[in-house]
Design a binder for these strands. Structure first.
Length: 190
DNA sequence: CATGGGATTGACT
DNA sequence: GTCAATCCCATGC
């Protein structure tokens, strides 16, 4: 997808990414859950301003921002808004569509619904790591592509973001309501 | 240089 | 429902 797609308000990008496809190393999945983060609110890593860590968040849109969560998991984001604004969309869940056998191997599981139903799970399933921080999502190795026809106009639900303590009430989480691969139910009661 | 806090997950009661 | 694993980074002394 082109840079213009990401160079928009981050909440809009988060909504539009539902149905798009993420690919890496022979595996791919359709995005079914996202959350928006913006430097104007304290839950966003970019809230602290420009540091070594947040450099990619403030950089040009359409790039990957990777961070380590709880010392264990890598989480994947798509940098959005114009350069100079620190904003990104957290990819929280995918429906596996390609390389399922390899995903099972990496995750040590068999149930397809459990392979990518969480931000730390999907990076493990696709083999995405911190070294992909800053990668151009149009060129790879991590690639985002437009939604397949069957995934356009699927019903999407909005709710509060999950697992955060700061700014917990912003309705910036988006889910494909009919998916069985969400990290939590679409209508989260926070 | 020491410290504390996570945008999580899986195992266990 | 509870809880620990584990590490990167921003902050403060």
């Amino acid at each position: 997808m082109k840079r213009a797609f990401y160079q928009r308000p981050v909440v809009e990008v988060a909504r539009e990414l539902i149905g798009c496809v993420v690919s890496h190393d022979r595996c791919a999945g359709v995005i079914v859950e996202t959350e928006a983060y913006h430097d104007s609110e304290p839950a966003c890593h970019a809230f602290v301003g420009l540091t070594n860590r947040t450099r990619v968040l403030f950089g040009p849109p359409g790039h990957a921002y990777l961070y380590r969560s709880y010392g264990i998991h890598a989480c994947l984001n798509a940098v959005s808004e114009p350069e100079g604004v620190g904003a990104a969309v957290l990819i929280r869940a995918l429906e596996p569509v390609e390389g399922i056998e390899l995903m099972c191997e990496r995750r040590g599981l068999e149930r397809v619904e459990d392979l990518c139903s969480g931000p730390g799970k999907l990076t493990q399933a696709l083999g995405i790591e911190l070294e992909h921080n800053g990668c151009d999502l149009g060129r790879g190795p991590v690639v985002f592509a437009r939604a397949p026809r069957a995934w356009r106009d699927v019903p999407v639900a909005v709710s509060k973001r999950i697992g955060i303590t700061k700014a917990p009430d912003l309705p910036w989480r988006f889910c494909a309501v009919d998916s069985r691969c969400l990290s939590r139910p679409a209508l989260s009661r926070a």
